[in-house]
Structure formats: C-alpha cells, structure tokens
C-alpha cells in the first residue's frame, strides 16, 4: 500500500513536482522490499547451494563456512556422471566413504527419478486442466440443481488427513493393478490436486461478470464454446496458477509415492532423495546437492509461465 500511496495520493496541482519525488520514493520502497524478500526467500536456498559444494567434513564446521573453502563437485559428479555397472561383490560400493564423502548407491537413480517426477507432474497438470476447467466453469456459471453441493463434495475429498488415507489408497491402487507404475501416482495426484484446481478456478470464474456469459450465449455459443472462446482466454493467470499448483504438488509428494512405488521404474524424486538417508550413514551435503538439482525444472517452468501471471492480462478486458 505504501507503494501505491506515493504514486497516487498527491494533490493534482502539484502533480508534476511531487510525482518525480514520489517516483523516487516508490522506487526506493520497491527496491528495499525486493531486497528483504530476496533475503527471506534465498538465504536458506543459498545455504542449500553452498553446502552442496562442500564435503561432509566441511559442512560440520563451526562456525559454518558460508562459501565452501574447498569446493567439491563430488556430489554433482555422482548425480550426473555415475556410470551404471552391474553390482557384484567386487564392484559394490562399501557404505564407508572411500574418498571422504559418502555417496549413496542410489545416486545414479536421481536423474531417472527426476524424469519420472517430470512425466507424472506434466500428466497431472494436463489432466487437471482437462478435468478441472469444465467442472469449475459449470459450478461458477451454470445454475443447476446441486451446484453448491457439488462444490462442497469436491472439497470434502481433501479434508481427511493423508495419513489416514494411505492404506485405503494402497488398496485401490493395488486392485487397479497399478503398484510400482507411474499411472498409480498420476491418478492419485490427480485426485488430490483436482479439488483445489476446481476451487481456485471456480472462484476466478465467479469474479468474471455474468454478462460475458449471457452475451456469448445470446450470440449462440454453446456452453463448451462459451467456455473455450470467452472464459479460457480471460482465465489465463488463474490457469497458470493452477498449473503450477498441480505441477509442484506432484513434484513434492512423498507419502503416497513411498507406498506405491518400489523400483526406479516408478520411483519419484522425493523417494530417491529420502533414500539417501539410511540408518548407517547420511550425507547432508549430498542431500542438499539433490535438493539443488530438484529445484531446476520447476524454476525453468516458472520462468516460462511467469509472465502470464504477472502481466495483468485481464485487467482491462473484464469491464463487464
């Protein structure tokens, strides 16, 4: 609010003079706010990044080394360049570190698991849109019997804690014959994300004037045409929000993936990251390296879609 106050709350007669000064104040406020925000968000990430280049011995230094004194690429090498070889007594990796840092034997699975996560997340995003958009439109703009009830029904599926749903979900997946298959995660993630997808979109569609809907209908558009030609273009920011939501929820989910998957055919990134902790040893620096790698795809995606959210596409178009 401070940001806008300097921008607009000025008597009009002194507009020019004041606006120059207030423009400077505005920039300063924005600058300071941005710095604070970046520190809040990036400080832990910076530590994540820095420690991923440290050896396990360096990471326990007191006080911490904010920048690695002896940067090592060991963790990333293990993730990106570990060659697959058949494990025999001779080639087995003894859990004791040979070179100072402990690299878990599942390190080579990180990239394949990331691919699984990516495929699953993309599929969940697409299905969310296909399934969620029409439903949200119907709930927001079509007056039909049971409309309210349907909104609440959808929300109800997300009020039970996941812990309580693990076993019954497992039974469903097992009986669908989907254990250890990426499909198992695609359909469960769809089921856990789509209620919020619908909810977010309903609230957005509702904020669009009914007149748009009526006008389109009077022009002879079918419901489907109205949705696709009128509402979808206007809803782009919220669609992007929903896509990010579905993608990242799938990207992050751990508990169900832990239960449904058991080989690298279907294991996702969080499962492989968790497998780096064992009861015999743990490498925080390696886990941090994995965390760094895990950030990359979503951030690229975010950079790609970001302008659709921030651009304020709808601002002028919606004057009913």
């Amino acid at each position: 609010m401070t940001l806008q106050s300097t921008k607009f709350s000025v008597p009009s007669e002194k507009w020019k003079y004041k606006s120059k000064r207030s423009e400077r104040t505005r920039s300063a406020v924005i600058f300071i706010a941005s710095i604070f925000l970046l520190i809040y968000v990036l400080a832990p990430v910076g530590w994540l990044l820095s420690s991923s280049f440290q050896s396990e011995a360096e990471i326990v230094s007191v006080p911490p080394h904010w920048l690695p004194h002896e940067p090592t690429m060991e963790n990333f090498n293990a993730i990106f360049f570990q060659e697959f070889e058949e494990v025999t007594y001779e080639t087995r990796r003894k859990v004791d570190p040979a070179a100072g840092g402990y690299i878990p034997s599942t390190a080579k699975d990180l990239l394949p698991s990331m691919w699984n996560s990516f495929i699953i997340s993309v599929a969940v995003v697409i299905l969310n849109l296909v399934v969620g958009v029409p439903a949200a439109y119907a709930m927001a703009k079509i007056r039909f019997w049971g409309r309210q009830a349907s909104v609440y029904t959808i929300l109800t599926t997300r009020v039970i804690p996941d812990i309580a749903l693990v076993v019954p979900f497992f039974l469903v997946i097992k009986n669908l014959g989907l254990l250890d298959h990426v499909m198992s995660l695609i359909i469960t993630y769809l089921a856990i994300t789509v209620p919020f997808t619908v909810f977010i979109l309903v609230s957005y569609f509702e904020s669009l004037p009914d007149e748009l809907d009526k006008a389109a209908r009077v022009d002879g558009c079918s419901r489907l045409q109205t949705l696709i030609q009128v509402f979808l273009p206007l809803a782009r920011p919220s669609l992007v929000a929903v896509m990010l939501f579905a993608f990242l929820t799938s990207w992050n989910e751990f508990l169900l993936a832990l239960m449904f998957t058991q080989t690298i055919a279907s294991q996702t990134l969080p499962i492989i990251v968790a497998s780096f902790t064992s009861d015999f040893t743990i490498s925080f620096s390696f886990i941090n390296a994995a965390g760094v790698v895990a950030i990359i795809p979503p951030v690229i995606l975010a950079l790609f879609f970001e302008r659709y959210i921030v651009s304020g596409l709808t601002a002028g178009a919606v004057k009913g």
Binding site: S34, L37, L38, V41, L42, P44, V45, W47, L48, S51, I59, L244, L248, W251, N252, E253, F254, L269, P270, V273, A274, T277, F284, I287, N288, A290, G291, A294, I295, P297, P298, V299, A302, L303, E306, R307, I309, V310
Partner: peptide, 24 residues
C-alpha cells in the same frame, strides 16, 4: 521477472529435502 521466479524456489524443493535443510 527475476524476483517472481525466485520466490517460487521454496515451493520447488521437495518436501523431504526441505525438511532436512531446515533440520540442518
């Protein structure tokens, strides 16, 4: 643009890695 991409990072760190990061 830079800031809006940066603020998404915490969201993109898998929960497990996030938990261990904060624990540390």
């Amino acid at each position: 643009r830079f800031i809006s991409a940066m603020i998404l990072i915490p969201w993109a760190i898998p929960t497990v890695a996030n938990g261990l990061l904060w624990k540390w």
